[in-house]
Simulated scan of single mutants.
Amino acid sequence: MPTIFTKIINGEIPCHKIAETEDFLAFLDVFPCAPGHTLVIPKKEVDYIFDLSDEMYAGLMAFAKSIEPAIRQAVPCKRVGVAVIGLEVPHAHVHLIPLNSMADMNFGAKITMTQEELTEVANKIKALL
């Protein structure tokens, strides 16, 4: 059965898309740790990030790195943190989270954002790419 991320890739579930290439997709997390929390995924459905081929793994990280400056400018922060948890969705993914303190990367204390707020943040990030 396809993961929720595969359904997003296939357009079956909408997302707040940030960027896309032939192999990768970046979109806002709808249950963010902080405004601008972005998920970066390979389009190929692979459960565990370390099961990606070396080429796909390097490409995923390079794609995430290319998006980081736009996130940092759109959502004022000290840094953009990177996390790979891999338990919540069985599809390899990287979290890019704007950080002003260590508390901003608390996966147990997600914030609530409206669809309008998510759209506004996504548009700010995309405009800076």
Rank of each mutant, 00 (worst) to 15 (best):
A74G: 12
H93Q: 05
I111L: 12
L96F: 08
V82G: 00
R72Q: 15
L99Y: 00
H91I: 07
Q73W: 00
P98Q: 10
R72Y: 00
H95Q: 13
A103W: 01
R72P: 00
V84L: 07
V89H: 07
V89G: 08
F107P: 08
I71E: 04
E88T: 11
R79A: 04
I71A: 04
R79Y: 02
I97F: 14
L96R: 11
M102P: 00
L96T: 13
A74C: 04
Q115G: 15
I85D: 06
H93S: 02
P90N: 13
P76K: 02
C77G: 09
A109S: 14
G108Q: 14
M113V: 03
I71P: 11
V84E: 05
H93T: 07
V82F: 14
V82P: 00
C77L: 06
C77I: 06
P98V: 10
E88A: 14
A92V: 09
Q73M: 06
K78Y: 02
L99Q: 15
P90Y: 12
R72E: 08
N106W: 08
G81C: 11
F107N: 09
V80C: 12
V84C: 11
V84Q: 13
R79E: 07
V84I: 15
S101G: 13
H91T: 03
Q73E: 15
I97E: 06
F107D: 10
K110R: 15
V80T: 10
A103N: 13
A109K: 14
N100W: 00
V75E: 10
V94D: 03
L99H: 00
M105T: 01
I85Y: 06
